[in-house]
Design a protein around this nucleic acid. Structure first.
Lengths: 114, 114
DNA sequence: TCAACATATGTTTATTTGTTCATATTATAA
DNA sequence: TTATAATATGAACAAATAAACATATGTTGA
C-alpha cells in the first residue's frame, strides 16, 4: 500500500524534526536575545556604537533620547551581553561587546534591504 | 588648549557617528524583523522547518501548539518574508523562505551558547 | 563635607502582543 | 450539494514592555 508507506515515512520524518530541535530552554534564550534586538531604540544605540565607544550622555544627545531611557536600555543590552562598559571619572563608556553583534545586525540588515 | 582640542575632536567624532547611522526608517524595519525572531513559539516553528517543509497541522502536533496559534504565527512569519508556502489539496505546506534565515538564527545561537 | 554632575533605578502608565475561543474560508470526497 | 477536514481570521483578554517622571547612587573638586 503506497499511501500507508508514505504516511509511515512522513511520521519518521517528523520524528527526525523533533530530534533535531534544540532544547526548549535554548530556544527560549535565543528568543530572548532577538527580543533585545527587536526595539528600534536599542538598535539605534547599538548602531551608534559601531564606530566608537560612547558615554550615556553622548548617546542621549546624539539620538534625542532621555537620559533615563538610554540608561534603562543600556541595562538591558548589558544584561544580554551585547555591550560592555568602563568607567572613566563621572562618565561610563559603553561599547559593543564583540564583533558578533555587528554580524547579527548586518545579517538582519541584508534581509531588510532586499 | 589641549582640553578644548579634545572636546572639538570629540564633537567631530559624534558627527561622524550620526552621519553613518542608517535612516530611522531602515532601523525601524530592522527592529521589526528581529521582533519576529523574538518569540520562542516562532523560533520553534522556524527551527522545525530547518529540515523540511511542514503543514500547519504537523507543526501544531509536533510542537504541542494549537492550530490557531500556529496559523497566527505563520501569518506573521509570512508577512515578514521568513517563510513561504504552497497549497496541496487541503493542506498548506510552509518552509523557510531562504538560507538567510538559518544564518541569522545560527548567528544568534552562537551568541547564546557562549 | 558639600555642591555639581553623570548615571542608575523604582514606579506608574499606555501600548503592544501572544493566546484562546468562536467562526469563516477553502478544498475534497461522497 | 453536502459533510468533513485543513487552514485562516476576528475579537477579547492577560501578560509583557518601553517611556516618562521622580529619586537614588556614585564621582569629582572645592
Amino acid at each position: 500500500m503506497e499511501e500507508k508507506e508514505y504516511l509511515e515515512d512522513h511520521e519518521e520524518l517528523l520524528k527526525t524534526v523533533l530530534d533535531r530541535q534544540p532544547a526548549d530552554e535554548v530556544l527560549y534564550d535565543l528568543a530572548e536575545l532577538f527580543k533585545v534586538f527587536g526595539d528600534s531604540t536599542r538598535i539605534k544605540i547599538l548602531y551608534a556604537m559601531f564606530e566608537t565607544e560612547l558615554c550615556v550622555n553622548d548617546i542621549a544627545r546624539l539620538l534625542n533620547l532621555s537620559q533615563s531611557s538610554v540608561s534603562h536600555q543600556l541595562r538591558i543590552l548589558k544584561t544580554s551581553k551585547l555591550v560592555k562598559f568602563r568607567r572613566e571619572g563621572k562618565s561610563v563608556f559603553y561599547s559593543l561587546d564583540d564583533e558578533h553583534i555587528k554580524l547579527i545586525l548586518s545579517m538582519g540588515m541584508e534581509h531588510v534591504e532586499e
